[in-house]
Every structure is written in C-alpha cells, then in structure tokens.
C-alpha cells in the first residue's frame, strides 16, 4: 500500500529511573486507522501512549508525525510551542481519568470551546454553537452546557472529554482506557462514537485498553505489550483468534467469556 502513515515511531525506549517502562517499540498509524494497544497494567501502554502523543520524551527513539500542512515532524524535536499547538489542534489525548483532561471548574461549554478558540476561532457565539453540536454528538443533554464537569457523573465526564478533544477535528487521538470505569451501556456508546468518527472523518486513533472486546470491535490492528515490549502485533482478529506468542495466548485465554 502506498498510503503514508500519519504517525510512525521507531525504537522508542523510556525508563523511570532504573525501571524500563517501554523498550524498543516501533509502530505505524495510518489515516483512519485504529490501532489497539493491549496488555496488563504495568506493561508500558500508557507510557507508550504519552510518548506517541508528544506528552513525554523518550530516552531513545523518535516519533514522526505527518502534519496537516504536509511536513513530516519529529514530534520530540520540534520546539515546545509547536508541539503544544499541535496538541491543542491536530492531536487529541483522552485521559483515563476525565478529571485530568477537563477543567473541572469551567462550564462544559467552556471546556469544549477551549480548543476551537485556541486554534483560531474568534467568535464566542460560534464556539458555543460548536460546543452544543458536540454535546449532542456525545449524547449529553444540551441543557447541561453551562454546568461544570464537577457536577457531571463519571460517564458524562468521559463523554465530555471526548467532545472536548474532537471539537477541533483532530487527525489523531490517543485514547487511554476510554471505557474503563464506565457503565456497560455508556461503554457501548463511547465505542460507537469513536468508531463512527473514525469511519466518517478519517480520524486515526491509538487505543490503549485492557478490554479485549473493545479492542476487537474498534481496532484494525493490535499491538500486544508485555514488560514494555511489543511482543506481538498484527491484524486484530488474527492476533485474538490465532495468537502466536505464549503471552498473547495467556492473555486471550484468561478473559472470561468471549472477546
């Protein structure tokens, strides 16, 4: 295939003190592709995600991002200001705890409008209209627009965080356990939302999850991590249905029910 990746990473490693968190991981993410990253807690999934998103510098290795204007950027070598601008516009990051990704004391509308305003939208009326549209897309009631996230339930916060990230139509989002801690019905809603956005707008995503069912339903390809290494990767259903590595086989056979 001739299509170019939106994001590619080569030889990423990162240690916390003497403890290696990510070891020599390379990957590529293509337009409108969802890449699932699975593994137990402590396997380095979140650290990898932060490095890919530009939030955390690797000890070694490089992350390349193909910007909307066409240039290829080494995400950890560009100036901090450029990286921050990308993080507010073309890239999105959905934290496992919505509280980390939201301003809890600012209204929901203000949270959603923040990114569009930062990326050049001048009119507050337009920002408010956009915020309402997104509130509807994530199925939050319009009359909660002026409430603060601290008045929201956990599931509502999770959806609000998604809306906030998606309001600038990012090209790639990084999702850290977006369904963890949510009611099953809300989980399905969030999964459906991410799938729809990817199919409709060509959004690419890296989805870190320990939920193999979510990974199966959403991701095209899968990366399995153990002790900071990518031990297996491939087509999602192939990795889950015909896992090759001992660890992946253990992971797949350990889940209750069918993934």
């Amino acid at each position: 295939m001739t299509e170019e990746p939106v994001l590619s990473a080569a030889g990423l490693s990162k240690s916390y003190g003497a403890v290696p968190a990510v070891r020599d991981v390379s990957l590529e993410l293509y337009p409108s592709e969802i890449l699932g990253v699975v593994g137990e807690s402590g396997s380095g999934k979140t650290t990898l995600l932060k490095i890919l998103a530009g939030h955390l510098a690797p000890d070694s290795g490089e992350v390349f991002y193909r910007a909307a204007e066409g240039s290829l950027l080494s995400l950890h070598r560009i100036p901090e200001s450029r990286r921050r601008r990308l993080a507010r516009t073309e890239l999105g990051f959905v934290f496992q705890n919505p509280e980390d990704g939201l301003r809890m004391k600012i209204s929901a509308g203000g949270n959603i409008a923040e990114r569009p305003l930062a990326s050049g939208l001048r009119s507050f009326a337009e920002a408010r209209a956009a915020a309402l549209r997104w509130l509807e897309k994530v199925e939050l009631p319009a009359d909660r627009l002026d409430d603060r996230p601290e008045e929201y339930s956990g599931g509502m916060r999770a959806r609000l965080q998604l809306a906030k990230n998606l309001a600038t139509s990012p090209r790639a989002v990084f999702l850290d356990e977006p369904t963890a801690g949510l009611d099953v019905s809300v989980q399905a809603r969030v999964l459906d939302l991410i799938r729809g956005l990817s199919a409709e707008f060509g959004l690419s995503a890296v989805l870190v999850t320990h939920d193999l069912m979510a990974a199966r339903l959403l991701s095209h390809r899968l990366l399995v991590m153990k002790d900071g290494r990518a031990v297996e990767s491939g087509l999602t259903d192939q990795v889950l249905d015909d896992p090759q590595e001992p660890y992946t086989q253990l992971l797949v056979s350990s889940i209750l029910g069918e993934a």
Partner: peptide, 13 residues
C-alpha cells in the same frame, strides 16, 4: 467477504 457463524458487532449499531 466472509459470513461467519455468529454476528459480532458493536452493541448499539
């Protein structure tokens, strides 16, 4: 195209 024995889809679709 593949028709499996079971339908596996996202719950709300």
């Amino acid at each position: 195209s593949y028709v499996s024995q079971f339908l596996r889809v996202i719950p709300r679709v």
